[in-house]
Amino acid sequence: MMSIFQIWLGILQGLHVTALVTLYGLLFAVPFALLFGIAQHLTTGLARFAVTAVIEFWRSSSVIILLFVFYYALPVFGIELSAMTVGAMVIGLNIGGYASQSVRAGLQALDKGQSEAGSALGLTRAQVLFMIELPQALTAMAPTFINQLIQLVKGTAIVSLVTLTDMTFRAKELAQIEYDPVAIYTSLLLAYFVV
């Protein structure tokens, strides 16, 4: 029987995969959130409908189903992506979809006088956006972003299903070898809590 220490060591071997997927996931999530959040704020009519549709696709789909769809279906169309990329992309864009809504809400919550004052000072729309609106909106959104980062870390657990050896996968492996599921899965939950 493995000691608790060995179990922890075994699970933590998966930590770097968890960390990597989180990092790559951020690379998808942050640009997507900013780009689409701002786009939804600025566009009207048909363009806005298209932007909203993309966001809704990523928000409304189930992450786990998308993961498998992209993992198995994309190669059929000749697009070969590593399990890591697919995992990071799906989780990242899902979280990015949610975050884009906080970006938009943050921008819309700003007093209209702010952008009017900017325009009155002769700033262009882009200058108003980057120098006046975004700095205020992003500060206001900091707490929401931290929450979404936590969701991202936890979301990475699903990559174990497409054979990446993250913490959850390691735990499952260990449980199969050692048959001490109580200690191992308890440790796994604790490990995420600590992370």
Partner: peptide, 14 residues
């Protein structure tokens, strides 16, 4: 703070 998959495995195996 823990992932849903973690809980499912926990319940399923423990």
């Amino acid at each position: 703070a823990t992932p849903v998959l973690g809980w499912l495995y926990f319940m399923y195996f423990v």
